[in-house]
């Protein structure tokens, strides 16, 4: 219980990062098939990436974190979500998304494919001895 209290809010922070990516994705999707305004999704992408980095920094500073478990769980989750993000990216490319909108979509999918494995692996590892 003591370790639980002291554990940094990395999962909560990265969940907000995931939410930022999802809001950006909904924004981009809701403007299809027109070229979407990119200011909001770009800001959301930067915020999401910053929050992900903040979450990673938080757990690297947590003494006694079970990195072994984090890597064992995270690598398989990463593989699964790279495949899922790749399918969504393929759908955007196949539907003629090009240039800056594609770069923003790709950035969001990269953050998405890192956020979810981070959340799964960190949740598992925080309870590991």
């Amino acid at each position: 219980m003591n370790a639980e209290r002291k554990f940094p809010k990395a999962v909560e922070v990265v969940t907000v990062s995931l939410a930022a990516v999802v809001v950006g994705g909904v924004w981009l999707g809701s403007h299809a098939p027109r070229r979407p305004p990119l200011a909001l999704p770009t800001v959301l992408l930067v915020v999401a990436a910053a929050l992900l980095l903040a979450g990673i920094t938080m757990i690297t500073r947590f003494a006694g974190f079970s990195w072994n478990t984090f890597v064992r769980v995270g690598r398989w989750a990463l593989l699964a979500y790279i495949i899922a993000a790749g399918m969504i990216e393929f759908a955007f490319v196949r539907n003629h998304t090009r240039g800056t909108p594609l770069a923003v979509v790709t950035g969001m999918l990269v953050v998405f494919a890192l956020d979810v494995p981070f959340l799964i692996a960190t949740t598992v590892a925080r309870y590991d001895d």
């Binding site: 999962v11 990265v14 969940t15 995931l18 939410a19 799964i120 949740t123 598992v124 309870y127």
Partner: peptide, 17 residues
């Protein structure tokens, strides 16, 4: 998606682990 990926799925894997 945020609820399922941020809360539900990590809880599922943690239980099994």
């Amino acid at each position: 998606a945020v609820i399922a990926l941020g809360v539900l799925e990590p809880a599922n894997i943690t239980v099994l682990w």
